[in-house]
Structure formats: C-alpha cells, structure tokens
Amino acid sequence: MRALILPCLLACLSLALPTERAQATEFKNVLVTDVSKDQISIRSNYSGETLLLFGAIDTQPYGEADGVVVVLRGPAQNITLRKKNKQFGIWVNGPAYRLGDLPSFYAVASSRPVAELLPSARRAELGIGADVLKASNLDAKVDAEREAIEAFLRLKQQANLFAAQSDAVEIIRGKLFRAEINLPAGMPVGRYTTEFFAFKGGALIGYQTGELPVDIVGAGHILHEAAYNMSLLYGIFGVALAVFMGWGVAIIFRRS
C-alpha cells in the first residue's frame, strides 16, 4: 500500500517544482550529484570542452530509477527574431518577433528519450526538453509565435547552443550515473544552472540543482569588459594600436 501512495504523493508534491523548487528537499531525495568543473573559463583560444555531470542514486527508498535527466541551462535572454520577405526583388528583414526569457544555452542529456519518461505537459512544468520551452511573448502576436519559436530552436541548434541527447546519461548498476554535455566554443557567458532529475514511474524521486558560472578570462576578459563598459577608451585603444602597428611596419620595411 505504502509503495503505491508514495509515488502519488511525490507527484503531487513535485507539481509545485518549477516555481518553488525548494520544495524538492521535502521528499526523500535520492540524488547526490556533482559536476567535473565548478566554473568554465573561456580563454582566447577556447575551442569548447566536454563537461562531465555525475552522481549517485540512493536505491533504498524507491528502488532503481527509470531514468535520469540532466539539464544545463544558460542565462535567460530577450531576443528579436526577424523574418526575411521579398520586397522589390530582394530579400529584406520584415516582421520582427520579440521573445522573452529564453535560455541562451540549453542542453538536455538523458538516459532514455525524455518523451518516453514523461508526458509533454509534465516536461513543460519541469522545463525538460527544448520543444516544450515557453517564451514570454513580448508583443503578444500569438499567431506567429510558434513559427518564431521553431525558428529560434533551429537557429540555436545550428549554433550548437541547443542540444538534446537521449543516450548521454549512463546509469551504472542502477546506482551511479554520468552524463557528458558538449560545450561549444561560442557559448554565451553568464550564470548557468545545472539540474538533475531522477524519475520512477513518471514521478520525480530525485532533484538537485546547482550553478555553473561561465566567464571570459585573461586578456579577452579585459577587452570584453572594456568594449561594453568603457567603450570610448576601447575605441581609442583600437585606434592607438592601429597607429602603432602601421607606424612600426612602415619603419621595419623601410630598413629591409
């Protein structure tokens, strides 16, 4: 009897998860998790890397989990999508769609296809899967919204900023799991969040979340900061560098 009630109870509890994730600690959390790095440093020669996310599943309370899902999410952005249309024989940017609160980076790794683990309504609540992401529509142009979001997903996937891998979480003897998420060279900077989910019978039995800062470091960091926060100085520096190089080269080649 108890075994039957618990998943139901958990399902009810976890309904509140997307808004109040703190409640996740109220049930017996079966997950202990960690990430191979506690921050990502992007240097000028950064060419991407593979992030390892791993953990242990406590099989004592509920037995083995049906599936484990790991989500890495970049900071939310407001974006403008523009659709080209043909005017006077050439393709020009036409209508613009402004979409809010969409993640700049989004990767889902799971032990099975997420659609097999959960119905899409539930996935939407938990934010699992790019196909169920909701944008706050800043213009309220509802009719065009779906097409725009699909285009957004397509563009992000092409840039390797959105990825879903249904076999990227490996569960070892039901107790340990590891997931690999590929980070591309051009990843946006900011505070990323990691989320780990364990499911049994469609109910959430384990949840952990953490932060992963992604920052540009070294000389690139100084330039990046300067370009946005001290743009006048940055521009003057660009010109000074150019004058210096032009002058230097003229002198070098005159001697030879």
Partner: peptide, 15 residues
C-alpha cells in the same frame, strides 16, 4: 531566397 529566413538578435538579459 536565403536558406534560413529567420535571424536572431539579442536584446539584453531577460529576467
């Protein structure tokens, strides 16, 4: 006709 009709621009950090 371009392969991709849509283009993406960032407006700033959302909430």
């Amino acid at each position: 006709q371009p392969d991709e009709l849509f283009s993406l621009t960032r407006m700033g950090t959302g909430g």
